[in-house]
């Protein structure tokens, strides 16, 4: 095998991205649990631990930039490193949204909920699934799985619309729900954004595997 140290660095980068993905997936999970159970301690934990995600993001970024500068990677190595650089940023943003959700939980977690929460936890679950499937696709070089991951974003978007309509009606009926409704709407929006970033993961992972640049926001253009 040639260029062994380079290969070692690539495999460290792969592990770091996986760790980043796990941290983010956990953060989304914990934020959703904190929301449903009104668990302020857990919400606090998500906010604190976001610093770890930010630190790891910086480390991955530096590593990618050094590899680009020092190794001048080509072809699949180039696609791998650029994908790492891109999805690193998406993952970090997803972590930020999990933190934002937790900050809202800290604000509304002590008051009774205005409605039972069904769609929001479901959105969080789908978002985690997107991250998980994409990380598996990333490791196994599985284009189909990355595509499948992106498909869940449609459902997240549908749930977002439902939530919007439902909360808008609630606010129109009962002005005392407005404040919490707006907070919940923010949460729905954050989860919807997480779904969009998770779709970016699919796009870049597919690029890494095959070199194709797909626009998965518009699923009609995708060759399955």
């Amino acid at each position: 095998m040639v260029r062994e140290s380079f290969q070692e660095q690539l495999s460290k980068l792969r592990n770091d991205i996986l760790q980043m993905g796990n941290l983010v997936e956990n953060a989304i999970d914990m934020a959703a649990v904190a929301l449903v159970n009104q668990d302020l301690e857990l919400a606090e934990k998500v906010v604190m631990e976001d610093d770890n995600i930010d630190r790891l993001q910086m480390a991955i970024e530096s590593m990618c930039l050094s590899l680009l500068a020092l190794q001048q990677p080509m072809a699949r190595d180039l696609r791998f490193i650029s994908t790492a650089l891109k999805i690193n940023t998406d993952l970090e943003r997803m972590g930020d949204y999990a933190r934002n959700i937790s900050k809202i939980v800290l604000k509304i977690g002590s008051e009774p909920l205005i409605k039972p929460l069904v769609d929001l936890p479901r959105m969080a679950e789908l978002a985690q699934q997107m991250v998980r499937e994409n990380l598996t696709a990333f490791v196994k070089q599985d284009r189909d799985l990355a595509l499948q991951a992106a498909m869940h974003d449609r459902e997240i978007n549908k749930l977002y619309k439902n939530t919007f309509t439902e909360l808008a009606e609630l606010m129109a009926r009962d002005a005392s729900t407005i404040k919490q409704s707006i907070y919940l709407l923010f949460i729905a929006r954050y989860l919807e954004r997480i779904g969009d970033h998770a779709t970016n993961l699919s796009e870049w992972i597919i690029y890494m595997i095959t070199g194709e640049r797909l626009e998965l926001g518009d699923m009609s253009s995708v060759v399955r």
Binding site: V2, R3, M74, A75
Partner: peptide, 11 residues
């Protein structure tokens, strides 16, 4: 084979 060569995985 092209990929292996240009990424230095040759031989």
């Amino acid at each position: 084979r092209t990929e292996d060569y240009i990424t230095g995985r040759f031989g």
